[in-house]
Amino acid sequence: MKTLKEVKVGQSAVVVKIHGEGALKRRIMDMGITKGVKITVRKVAPLGDPLELNLRGYELSLRKADAEMIEIE
């Protein structure tokens, strides 16, 4: 399984499935990370975590541990 965590800075990927459950999953999906959405990894924070993503026309920050739950193509 390939996850969002493995996507390199500057590259994009399409979401296949979001793993996990409950509040965590709901929060990620509420912010627009849903099946079929295209996500670009903009940059990594200076200390190596979290990530800055671009999706649905806006910027979102997400920890690597959470990015691991997002399966991509």
Partner: peptide, 12 residues
């Protein structure tokens, strides 16, 4: 608290 992810918008 249930683990809440750090999913934060970075506004323009």
């Amino acid at each position: 608290s249930e683990y809440t992810p750090f999913v934060m918008e970075l506004p323009a």
